[in-house]
């Protein structure tokens, strides 16, 4: 097994990651309630959620330590899925604007 012999995360790492995840979640909820952040709420939340996503995938799913090929198997479709979301948003909100604008 290729996994063996590679640096593995320890229980300590897992606990630290958990602490960070909980903290980020608290920040997210906090930001949500602070009126001053309303303007930048969406980008801030997206970044924070991406950080959480990455932490879980990298450490709990061991992608950081595991074979790069797994990262490809997961990352490729993930990017494709992201592209689907973004392009559909562009198409739908784009056409709405064009329609109302004309």
């Amino acid at each position: 097994m290729s996994e063996q012999g590679q640096a593995h995360a320890t229980t300590g790492t897992y606990l630290r990651i958990a602490a960070i995840l909980v903290m980020i979640t608290l920040i997210e909820v906090g930001v949500f309630y602070v009126p001053a952040f309303q303007a930048v709420l969406v980008p801030v939340l997206l970044v924070l959620s991406a950080v959480k996503f990455t932490l879980v995938v990298m450490f709990y799913m061991h992608l950081k330590f595991d074979n790069k090929f797994f990262a490809f198997l997961f990352g490729g479709p993930l990017l494709l899925g992201l592209a689907v979301v973004v392009s559909l948003l562009f198409i739908f909100y784009g056409t709405v604007r064009l329609r109302t604008g004309s």
Partner: peptide, 19 residues
């Protein structure tokens, strides 16, 4: 490996639903 491929596939499933 099959399972990672499955998870990749699930990304598209949830991607479509979130879209």
């Amino acid at each position: 490996m099959a399972f990672w491929a499955f998870i990749g596939s699930e990304c598209l499933l949830f991607g479509s639903l979130i879209s």
